[in-house]
Write a protein that binds this DNA or RNA. Structure first.
Lengths: 195, 195
DNA sequence: TATTTTTAATTGACTGCTCAATCAATAAAA
DNA sequence: TTTTATTGATTGAGCAGTCAATTAAAAATA
């Protein structure tokens, strides 16, 4: 049944299937067979379009990084003052379309991969540095020198809330996560305003 | 070279070796061979004492959970007022003896395992529920009804800081993590004191 | 238009490797 | 002599990656 021009379609399907499969079996537990089956193609086709399992997983990671970066940029573009820009980042982190369990746990699987995989670590470091730089930039006018530590605190809390959101046992909602984050930010801003 | 009474010694050695090996290869990437080699024994011996790879990894997880719980209990026992008890939990989370990169990344590997592994999820849920219950209990007199969300925020931030500490790229120190946590707690307490 | 040729998509069958798990054999302590 | 510790050799399963064969669309040619 060969229709031409399948390459980009199949690649996308395989990446989306990989996210689901990784959620079910874990990053290292997943097989090309798992992914291909979910995408409705043979394992050989997955190899044909990606060359290797590593390539497919790496493409999946880049896909997620791209999605998150895009969501953040879109929201930052329409945010006004620094406080609104901080909130744009928080909201982007917990936007409903970023927040399926499969997406989160795949994201975090790559996080863990970065502990012992140089290539993954490099990609993740770029993302994290940009996130923290954005936060720092907008926090500086609000809290001055405390901005570095504060930005790291917010970044850590975002990832911690994701981690907990990925655990089915805890059933945490994005809205709750956002509320907790805003309490953190506002509490600190109120405390700084007094000193 | 059979000396009698090796069982508990070997089991402990294998568990410690497993932590190191998991740090290097990841939870699913690790093999019995990796672990056994690190412990200076044959793969067959690891099977002899643990029956299966799953058993060994599960024992390793229980070992970590036990260590963390013990550290927290010790510090809580000598803490006075609620604020000091909260701090005891924070300190236990970032005590130097709990904070080797290998320990952290192994801990977080189990976290990720819990996403798709029922047994691991059950163990982790017990730990997390206890942690949050402790925090909630001590925060209640300090912040009233906000204690539930606050406890979840602290728990999330602890795990987020661990996650970042596990990434070699970021080289974050336990002291910095503690500072960020204390800023969070104190900022929120100061904000509540005003309302 | 009809026919042939080229190109892309797709898979089943196969290969080789890694690894968990088993087991029989050996060695030393009790 | 019994029990415990220990390993080398082996088995069997699962999986990544390869390849040749098949199908159909598209392009070229008559």
């Amino acid at each position: 049944m060969p229709k031409r021009g399948m390459q980009p379609i199949r690649q996308r399907e395989l990446i989306l299937a990989a996210v689901e499969a990784i959620h079910e079996r874990g990053l290292n537990g997943v097989t090309m067979g798992d992914i291909a089956k979910r995408a409705g193609v043979s394992p050989a086709l997955a190899h044909h379009y990606f060359g290797s399992k590593d390539e497919l997983l790496s493409a999946t990671m880049r896909h997620l990084l791209g999605e998150f970066a895009l969501a953040a940029r879109r929201r930052l573009a329409v945010a006004g003052d620094p406080r609104a820009r901080v909130d744009a980042i928080l909201e982007a982190s917990f936007a409903p379309d970023q927040f399926s369990p499969a997406l989160i746990s795949t994201w975090l699987a790559f996080y863990m991969q970065s502990v012992h995989d140089k290539a993954a670590a490099r990609l993740l470091a770029i993302y994290l540095k940009r996130l923290e730089a954005n936060l720092r930039h907008d926090l500086r006018p609000l809290v001055g020198d405390g901005a570095v530590a504060f930005a790291r605190g917010i970044a850590a809390m975002i990832d911690g809330l994701w981690l907990h959101a990925a655990l089915p046992t805890l059933h945490r909602s994005p809205d709750e996560a956002l509320g907790i984050l805003r309490d953190y930010v506002d509490g600190r801003l109120a405390a700084v305003a007094l000193s």
